[in-house]
Computed example of a mutant assay.
Amino acid sequence: MNSAFAIVAMLLAAVSSCDQMRHQPRYDSEERSTLFANGMSLQASPDGTIARDDPAQRQALRERPAMTGELLARGRERFGIYCTPCHDLSGHGQGIVPSRGFPHPPSFHIDRLRNAPSSYFVDVITNGHGVMYSYADRVSPADRWAIAAYIRALQLSQDAPASALSAADRTKLEGGGR
């Protein structure tokens, strides 16, 4: 009987306190405040803050950069930071996160993703897809394009025709030049 009384008392206390949140004090954006040293409730954004709808950011997403060694190196670095936990280093979707029960992402080496435009990868990084959330607040537009370029390099590395290799590399591939 005592445990039932305790449960009812806790529920009543919780329900009665819910309304308290609705009546908390707040400030309007231009209202004076003693909370901050400058006396204003609205504070300036920190240096480097970029609005979500920033025109420069939108333009950077539309313009695919030229393929360079620097772009690939940056893409490899960013891929290693943001993508490998789920996609693994080779892009097969066997990262540490899925090995612990999270759904496996698709391999970048399936035909559907090999045939997808690079802008598809940029869009997925920007908006998320399936259980992957958006990385727009973590990865700059230029870095999204760099990651997409690196994904293309990964795809090529896993399915390059032997005819695309130099004679020396073909010999190594065939086991003759260890």
Rank of each mutant, 00 (worst) to 15 (best):
S140I: 00
T84N: 04
L71I: 05
A136N: 07
R152F: 02
D143G: 00
D111G: 13
V122W: 04
S99N: 15
P85L: 08
R100W: 14
E70R: 06
P106H: 14
H87K: 07
F102R: 15
L113Y: 12
C83I: 04
R74T: 04
Y82K: 03
I125A: 05
T84W: 07
A73Q: 07
L89E: 14
N115Y: 09
H104R: 15
P106I: 14
Y135V: 00
P117D: 09
I96H: 08
L89A: 15
R76G: 12
I125M: 07
G130K: 03
E77K: 08
S90T: 15
H104I: 13
L71C: 05
V139G: 01
D143W: 02
I96S: 09
H92C: 11
W145P: 01
N127P: 02
A148Y: 09
A146G: 07
F121T: 09
I125V: 06
N115I: 07
A142K: 02
D111L: 14
R138K: 10
A136P: 02
L72Q: 02
R112I: 13
W145M: 01
S99R: 15
F102K: 15
I125H: 04
H104T: 15
A146V: 05
D143M: 01
R152W: 02
G91H: 05
R74E: 03
A116M: 08
S118P: 11
A116G: 09
V122L: 03
Q94P: 08
R74Y: 01
A73H: 02
I96G: 06
A149Y: 11
P141C: 00
A116L: 08
A142H: 02
F121R: 05
A136Y: 06
G101V: 13
S99P: 12
P141R: 00
F121K: 05
Y133N: 11
A142N: 04
S134P: 00
P105G: 11
F108D: 12
I81W: 09
R152T: 10
R112T: 14
P106N: 15
M132V: 00
T84L: 03
F102Q: 15
T126V: 09
V139K: 03
H87N: 05
R152P: 04
R76C: 10
F121E: 06
S99C: 13
C86V: 07
P106K: 14
G69S: 05
F108E: 11
W145R: 00
I110F: 10
D111Q: 14
A142Q: 05
R138G: 03
L113R: 11
H104W: 14
G75Q: 01
A149K: 10
D123F: 09
H87E: 04
G101D: 12
S119A: 13
R100E: 12
R114H: 13
R152K: 10
Y120Q: 11
L72K: 03
S134Q: 00
M132Q: 02
M132I: 00
I147P: 07
V131E: 08
P106M: 14
S134A: 01
T126A: 11
T84E: 08
E70V: 04
